[in-house]
Amino acid sequence: MNHLLEVTDLRKEYPLQSGLLGAVMGSRRVVHAVNGVSFVLDEGGSLGLAGESGCGKTTTAKLILKLLHPTAGSIRFAGRDVAGLDGSDLLSYRRQAQFIFQNPYEALNPRFTILRSLLEPLIIHEIGRSIAERVERVAGALDRVHLNPPETFFLKYPHQLSGGQLQRVVIARALLVDPVLLVADEPVSMLDVSIRAGVLNLMRDLSRERKLTTLYISHDLALIRYMCSVTAVMYLGTICEIGPTEEVIEHPRHPYTQALVSAVPDPDPTRPRRPVEIADTVPTPFQLPAGCPFADRCPQVMEVCRHLRPLLLPVDGGVRVACHLYPGSTPRAAEGDGAKLEPN
């Protein structure tokens, strides 16, 4: 198996505007949006990044797509460092990695017709010899996302379409350049329940058909269970658990994953509830605890958790967990902090 995407100890910090007082005191406060994330994604694989708002999952996606520059760490795509790409190399990376946005109402230029929006990638990458050929390709792309007949959508503006239709157009646009990696950030969270399944099925079918490698980012574990074979749970900028989706959801090991899984409401009212016993205070990413980021809320917190950050280390079932409850996670003296070991 080839690693298509290798993310190693990725970090992204934002300086915090601390105002006059901060300037006088000389303090530099920093938000650690992504704080040492490592994972690999195999060709044709599907990884779900789960976590709550502010855990750094969207920042991770934008770093991978080179919409942001990492503070430290590396992202390698097909063996090449993404940060160093420019010129024609960058253009070719742009063709290979595509992004599905969370808000379909904002992802298309409001002043472009659908046809114009879909011609854009073809113009940029000089795909198709004539305008007629490009229009053919656009029609084909709309057909593939089940917007039929395609011509009826050509001259529509985004505000004339529903959310579900817009997200299909966004998917069509991403597929026009024949990418190998597709990153989707909460692709259905803005859509109504009854039409979510259509968009999810479409993405699942298309990525199987074209053997795409996919990275889904969502707060919704159920969605990730449906779409992904591997799940990583993020908390405050770090991965606290990663492994085969079934294992992570059926037998969560990290106390945070356990809380997250049992907090998800279930559409079956007869199923008994497992209570969640953790505090509802969320530490902000600029006051990171010295030890485990989850220590303040953890119901099973131990003394060691307060001052030693656990490493993401393998336990059983192909799962890696960053938690001192699992003896492998306690770093030996020689090792520094951060999850240096390569997962999976």
Binding site: L65, L67, R95, F99, F101, Q102, E106, N109, I124, V170
Partner: peptide, 17 residues
């Protein structure tokens, strides 16, 4: 910071474009 401008970057549009 709108998605459609980020989308243009992801599609490979140059800064001027």
């Amino acid at each position: 910071t709108r998605s459609y401008v980020e989308a243009a970057r992801v599609l490979g549009a140059s800064h001027l474009r």
